[in-house]
Design a protein around this nucleic acid. Structure first.
Lengths: 228, 228
DNA sequence: ATTTGGATTATAACGCGTTATAGCTTTAGC
DNA sequence: GCTAAAGCTATAACGCGTTATAATCCAAAT
């Protein structure tokens, strides 16, 4: 039991705990490395020694929260096709429980330096989608020629960018869900067998109706305020 | 001829010109508001008076460059379906002419504050995609029930996030092109009529082969270096 | 020609992420 | 128990985007 390593780990935990606490309390505003160090009862230099950068800390916080998401995911019992949409809805639900927190973490993990954004949606999440693609293909819902990596990547990216728009405050959680569902429906239908396409097709029209309802207020979805 | 306004416009132009020059010369590195002000022969406060923020300046630079893209786009004479893919290839080509510059601009326009990223792919670009969706639908290639805004948005986003990955140095221009083409093929096929789907389908397999070739080096597309 | 007033200037300052330096505490090895 | 070193602390500093302040300039109106 190396006491040295214990103390280091304790400090590490204290920093992550303090980060979560600060984020949940005040969101992104007022969260700085200096504030974090003070809240963790530690010098400003220590977080850099233990994590390297603010972004690394945010990724650690994000991963801690993602563990919970993956627990829920494992418990999801859904059809090989429905699982795609339910996984999205589950994430939306979890985000909704602590939106300020998740927005702040996502924004900090992605927005500031930005370079490591594949880490935000890296290994575990991507592998999840890939696994579902494989299952859907085995179930005869997707074309056998479809490459799981390629489709999973497209799904991941579409999910990711919608989450970013939400984190940046440009859309609400409900629109996030509809948008991702819509993109997923199109992507999956594009890769689907005739049988799969028949099952996905009915999803499209209602999703479009929901989306146009969202956009009834804001005339054009991508138009910035200035030219509205 | 209000001399006052002329002088202001001259200053504005000097700033944009200096920004472009600096970006083309050294890329993102060494480009700061202080360096920009000095290069433009202007005080540090002036860019803020005239543009408001660094991001606004970057968006202005980006828009200046985009005008050229749109000129080329207008001259593109392609089939209602092929146009989607050729428009992407055209953008890739233009990026390739001055990659350092475009990366730096995109990164600065999007990456730093990040909040206005819809402005990066705002009005003009989005409207372009929407117009093409309308045309493809009129040509009987897309289902008549497809909502142009919704599909155009999905296309825009998919394009945008791949561009971001390129700007962040995580993929090359060739992979960028393949990825966007692949996503476009799936999305469009998902929204296509039987006739449209028949035309898009042959694109998918070659694109997948190209993508897997890219990924032969880097085992998993989304995996960060650490866990490779 | 003189006044007026809006814009630019120089400059200092703020908080940010990050890094470097020097000193101190505390653990590990003898 | 003593020494050596690892790791934290305190602190200053750097460059960044951005803002505020006061001085200054110069076109515009009288």
């Amino acid at each position: 039991m190396p006491t040295r390593e214990q103390a280091k780990q304790a400090r590490r935990d204290a920093i992550i705990t303090a980060a979560v606490r600060l984020m949940r309390a005040r969101g992104d505003a007022g969260f700085s490395m200096r504030a974090l160090a003070e809240a963790a009862g530690v010098s400003i230099a220590t977080p850099y020694n233990l994590f390297g950068s603010k972004q690394a800390i945010m990724l650690a916080v994000l991963d801690a929260g993602m563990a919970r998401y993956e627990d829920h995911l494992d418990r999801l019992e859904a059809d090989a096709l429905d699982i795609f949409f339910e996984a999205v809805s589950l994430a939306v639900e979890l985000y909704g429980e602590a939106p300020k927190f998740h927005k702040a973490v996502l924004f900090a993990a992605y927005g500031d330096g930005g370079r490591d954004h594949r880490a935000v949606f890296g290994d575990p999440r991507f592998l999840f989608w890939k696994g579902r693609v494989d299952q859907a293909r085995d179930a005869g819902l997707l074309e056998s020629e479809i490459e799981a990596n390629a489709l999973a990547l497209a799904l991941s990216q579409q999910f990711f960018i919608c989450i970013l728009e939400w984190a940046y405050g440009q859309i609400g959680l409900d629109e996030l869900e509809s948008r991702v569902h819509y993109s997923f429906a199109l992507l999956l239908k594009g890769a689907a067998t005739a049988a799969g396409a028949k099952r996905i097709a009915p999803r499209i029209r209602p999703l479009q109706q929901q989306l146009t309802r969202f956009w009834a207020d804001a005339p054009l979805p991508l138009t910035a305020d200035k030219s509205a």
